[in-house]
Computed example of a mutant assay.
Amino acid sequence: MNNTHLPRHLLTLDGLPFDALDALLTRAQAFADGHYDRRALDGIAVCTLFFEPSTRTRMSFTLAAQRLGADVLNFDASTSSTRKGETALDTLKNLEAMGVRGFVIRHHEDGAVAALSQHVELGTALVNAGDGRSAHPTQGLLDMLTLRQAKGHDFSKLKVAIVGDVKHSRVARSDLQALRTLGTGEIRVCGPASLLPNDGTLDGCVVSHDLDAALDGVDAAMMLRLQRERMEEGLVASLDDYHREFGLTAQRLTRAAPDAVVMHPGPINRGVEITDEVADGPQSLILRQVSNGVAVRMAVLEALLRG
Rank of each mutant, 00 (worst) to 15 (best):
V113H: 03
L126I: 12
A28R: 06
S156I: 15
E233S: 13
L21H: 06
L226V: 07
L13Q: 03
L89W: 09
A45D: 13
R67I: 00
D22H: 13
S60N: 06
G307P: 07
P197I: 11
P137D: 01
G123A: 06
L179N: 07
F51P: 00
V166S: 04
D259A: 15
R288V: 15
A178Y: 02
M98S: 11
T91Q: 00
L253M: 11
H264C: 06
Q149N: 13
L195P: 05
G204L: 12
L41V: 01
V104Q: 00
V207C: 07
T57D: 01
D276V: 12
I274D: 01
A115W: 14
G34V: 11
S60K: 04
A65V: 02
F103W: 06
A112E: 04
A250E: 12
G164K: 03
D19Q: 13
R56G: 04
Q29K: 15
Q149Y: 13
T249M: 08
G281E: 01
R8E: 08
G99Q: 05
R188L: 03
R188S: 02
P137H: 00
G185K: 14
A250K: 07
E245Q: 15
H209S: 10
T62W: 09
M223E: 02
F246G: 00
G85M: 05
A114L: 13
D165P: 09
N2R: 12
L301T: 01
L10E: 01
H9K: 03
Q118S: 15
S81M: 06
D33G: 12
F31T: 07
V272A: 06
D33W: 14
G123M: 06
S208E: 05
L63C: 12
V300S: 01
P267C: 10
C47M: 14
V300H: 02
L182T: 11
P192V: 10
H153G: 15
K159P: 07
K84V: 13
S60Q: 06
G266R: 04
F75C: 02
L10V: 12
V166Y: 05
D240Q: 12
P17A: 05
R58A: 05
S284M: 04
M231T: 07
F31L: 10
A214Q: 02
S54N: 03
V127D: 00
V163L: 15
H5E: 09
N74I: 14
L305K: 08
D203E: 14
A256T: 13
